[in-house]
Write a protein that binds this DNA or RNA. Structure first.
Length: 369
DNA sequence: CTCTGCCTTAC
DNA sequence: CCAGGTAGGCAGAG
């Protein structure tokens, strides 16, 4: 059920984005990091500087460092710059995030946390118009700064799409308001790659069709878009190019899959070299499953070979289960099968459970029996 | 329709 | 020679 505003007019949606989140958290607990490039890294099991950049602050970005970049490359860009490289500390960031999210949630009619550093808020009922919402956003930025110590960027729009693109428009520490009457203009000027769900591949395809801006996109027929991108994406693009988005702000639903993936100490195609990791992964998945009170019916594995190509295998069980044994057993069988099929050395290994249902809950219980 | 495997996105 | 996790769509087989 969606919230309809008392005005009977458009919704008012905010998108809050915590700035360079992991790196800002690190600055928060160490004042000696101020004014220095800070790079938060995911180090792999390979040791040394093997791994990738997760996030970095704006001082590091000034030297060309970006998320996803190999750590070695970031170090090269920042050599002689008094930069700090830190490993991710998920626990700590989660605790900081929880504080912020609690503040936001308390100020929304409907709330949707999308990730550790992003949330949508529907404020249609508590704000009488966009000016009112702008004042609320200002207050929220103040409160997050004074009580947690972080800056964030907020976008306000008539739906989630506009709000999201608005928060992205000016950062860090931005506040962008796009009134309904301005939404079409705001979005039309953007290049298509700025649209939510339009990544590298989709952008390249659109460009090859001569489509570069959202205005270009809005001229394409829905049939063409569906033909080229499939039903779901085609309709999405057609609406998005017009600033239309009816998605309600709602609490995020139950997890649909739980997975863990790891990089092996060394590339190998021998199963004995993988069993320890496979077991650890199975245990991690199981732990998360139990914590969330869920049962699974499908077990899968994923392999990334040394040439970075990937392959996955999954199997459906006859009954729902929450047994660690089932995860580990089936994962092993699937791994054996995959190794028979290809002897390419494996670099990374993953385990996943899906087809999840809650242990409690009535509709679930019926399906379980 | 169900299941599998692959692809794309994004944080 | 570079992380890890999740979601969702789609195509093809059965």
């Amino acid at each position: 059920m969606s919230i309809s505003s008392s005005r009977g007019k458009s919704r008012i949606v905010m998108h809050v984005d915590l700035d360079y989140f992991y790196a800002q958290c690190e600055e928060l607990r160490r004042n000696d990091l101020k004014d220095r490039p800070v790079v938060v890294c995911v180090y792999s099991a390979r040791g040394g500087d093997s791994g990738a950049v997760s996030t970095c602050n704006y001082k590091a970005r000034a030297y060309g460092v970006k998320a996803g970049m190999p750590i070695v490359q970031a170090k090269r860009l920042l050599r002689e710059q008094d930069a700090v490289f830190l490993p991710v500390d998920e626990q700590y960031y989660t605790s900081v995030s929880d504080m912020v999210m609690a503040i936001l949630r308390a100020n929304a009619d409907a709330f949707e946390q999308v990730s550790i550093d992003e949330a949508y808020m529907d404020v249609s009922m508590r704000c009488k118009d966009f000016d009112d919402a702008t004042r609320l956003a200002s207050r929220l930025k103040d409160e997050v700064r004074t009580s947690v110590g972080l800056t964030c960027s907020i976008g306000i729009g008539m739906n989630k799409l506009i709000a999201k693109m608005a928060s992205d428009y000016r950062k860090p520490d931005g506040l962008t308001v796009v009134r309904p009457e301005d939404a079409k203009d705001f979005i039309s000027r953007m290049s298509v790659g700025k649209l939510l769900w339009v990544g590298k591949k989709t952008e390249a395809t659109l460009n090859s069709m001569g489509i570069y801006t959202v205005a270009d996109l809005a001229k394409v027929s829905i049939d063409t878009l569906i033909k080229e991108f499939g039903r779901k994406m085609g309709i999405y693009l057609y609406n998005a190019s017009r600033g239309i988005d009816e998605e309600p702000v709602k609490e995020s639903a139950m997890a649909k899959q739980i997975s863990r993936i790891t990089t092996l100490k060394r590339n190998t195609s021998a199963i004995e070299d993988m069993l320890d990791d496979l077991n650890t992964l199975s245990m991690d998945v199981h732990k998360s499953l139990v914590e969330q009170g869920l049962l699974f019916r499908s077990v899968g594995i994923m392999l990334v070979y040394e040439d970075l190509s990937m392959r996955s295998r999954a199997r459906m069980l006859k009954h729902y289960s929450n047994s660690m044994d089932d995860i580990a057993r089936y994962a092993r069988v699937l791994l054996e099968e995959a190794l028979e099929e290809s002897s390419k050395p494996v670099r990374r290994l993953g385990v996943k459970v899906s087809d999840l249902v809650s242990v409690k809950g009535q509709e679930t219980l019926q399906r379980f029996m």
